[in-house]
Amino acid sequence: MLEREYALFNTKRDEFVRDHGNEFVVIQGESILGFFKDEIKALESMKGHRLGTFLVQRCVSIDTETAKYASRVAFA
Protein backbone atom coordinates (compact mmCIF):
# COMPACT_ATOMS: atom_id res chain seq x y z
CA MET A 1 0.00 0.00 0.00
CA LEU A 2 1.13 3.54 -0.84
CA GLU A 3 4.22 2.28 -2.71
CA ARG A 4 3.35 4.32 -5.81
CA GLU A 5 2.72 7.48 -3.79
CA TYR A 6 5.94 7.06 -1.78
CA ALA A 7 7.97 6.44 -4.95
CA LEU A 8 6.59 9.69 -6.39
CA PHE A 9 7.39 11.48 -3.15
CA ASN A 10 10.97 10.20 -3.25
CA THR A 11 11.51 11.42 -6.80
CA LYS A 12 10.40 14.89 -5.69
CA ARG A 13 11.75 14.82 -2.13
CA ASP A 14 14.59 17.33 -2.71
CA GLU A 15 12.25 19.80 -4.39
CA PHE A 16 9.62 19.41 -1.66
CA VAL A 17 12.18 19.83 1.13
CA ARG A 18 13.50 22.98 -0.56
CA ASP A 19 10.10 24.58 -1.24
CA HIS A 20 7.90 23.09 1.53
CA GLY A 21 10.35 21.97 4.23
CA ASN A 22 8.59 20.40 7.28
CA GLU A 23 5.16 20.71 5.66
CA PHE A 24 2.97 17.68 4.92
CA VAL A 25 2.23 16.77 1.33
CA VAL A 26 -0.86 14.78 0.35
CA ILE A 27 -0.39 12.41 -2.60
CA GLN A 28 -2.96 10.05 -4.10
CA GLY A 29 -1.93 7.92 -7.06
CA GLU A 30 0.07 10.22 -9.31
CA SER A 31 -1.61 13.39 -8.02
CA ILE A 32 -0.06 15.83 -5.59
CA LEU A 33 -3.12 17.23 -3.84
CA GLY A 34 -1.62 19.89 -1.58
CA PHE A 35 0.77 20.97 1.15
CA PHE A 36 -0.25 21.59 4.77
CA LYS A 37 1.59 22.99 7.78
CA ASP A 38 -0.36 20.68 10.08
CA GLU A 39 -0.58 16.90 9.71
CA ILE A 40 -4.12 16.60 11.08
CA LYS A 41 -5.31 19.34 8.67
CA ALA A 42 -3.68 17.38 5.83
CA LEU A 43 -5.59 14.26 6.90
CA GLU A 44 -8.82 16.26 7.30
CA SER A 45 -8.49 17.45 3.71
CA MET A 46 -9.01 13.81 2.64
CA LYS A 47 -12.23 13.23 4.62
CA GLY A 48 -14.54 11.20 2.42
CA HIS A 49 -11.65 9.19 0.97
CA ARG A 50 -10.67 5.79 2.32
CA LEU A 51 -7.74 5.91 4.74
CA GLY A 52 -4.83 3.97 3.24
CA THR A 53 -5.49 5.17 -0.31
CA PHE A 54 -3.46 8.38 0.05
CA LEU A 55 -0.09 9.35 1.50
CA VAL A 56 0.47 12.16 4.00
CA GLN A 57 4.23 12.58 4.08
CA ARG A 58 6.36 15.15 5.91
CA CYS A 59 8.75 16.96 3.59
CA VAL A 60 12.06 16.18 5.28
CA SER A 61 15.35 14.61 4.20
CA ILE A 62 15.77 10.82 4.27
CA ASP A 63 18.12 11.20 7.22
CA THR A 64 15.53 13.11 9.28
CA GLU A 65 12.83 10.63 8.28
CA THR A 66 14.84 7.52 9.17
CA ALA A 67 13.79 5.66 12.30
CA LYS A 68 16.80 3.95 13.91
CA TYR A 69 16.67 0.73 15.90
CA ALA A 70 19.81 -0.50 17.65
CA SER A 71 18.16 -3.65 18.93
CA ARG A 72 17.88 -6.86 16.94
CA VAL A 73 14.15 -6.72 16.33
CA ALA A 74 13.44 -7.97 12.82
CA PHE A 75 11.91 -5.37 10.53
CA ALA A 76 11.90 -7.30 7.28
Partner: peptide, 18 residues
Protein backbone atom coordinates in the same frame (compact mmCIF):
# COMPACT_ATOMS: atom_id res chain seq x y z
CA UNK B 1 -4.51 1.66 7.37
CA UNK B 2 -1.11 3.31 6.70
CA UNK B 3 -0.91 7.09 6.47
CA UNK B 4 2.72 7.45 5.38
CA UNK B 5 6.04 5.64 5.01
CA UNK B 6 9.45 5.85 6.67
CA UNK B 7 12.98 4.62 6.14
CA UNK B 8 14.18 2.18 8.78
CA UNK B 9 17.78 1.66 9.84
CA UNK B 10 18.31 -1.42 11.99
CA UNK B 11 20.70 -4.32 12.59
CA UNK B 12 19.61 -5.91 9.30
CA UNK B 13 19.16 -4.35 5.86
CA UNK B 14 17.73 -0.81 5.49
CA UNK B 15 13.99 -1.08 5.00
CA UNK B 16 10.89 0.93 4.19
CA UNK B 17 8.00 0.65 6.61
CA UNK B 18 4.40 1.72 6.61
Amino acid sequence: PPISKAHISCAGQPYESN
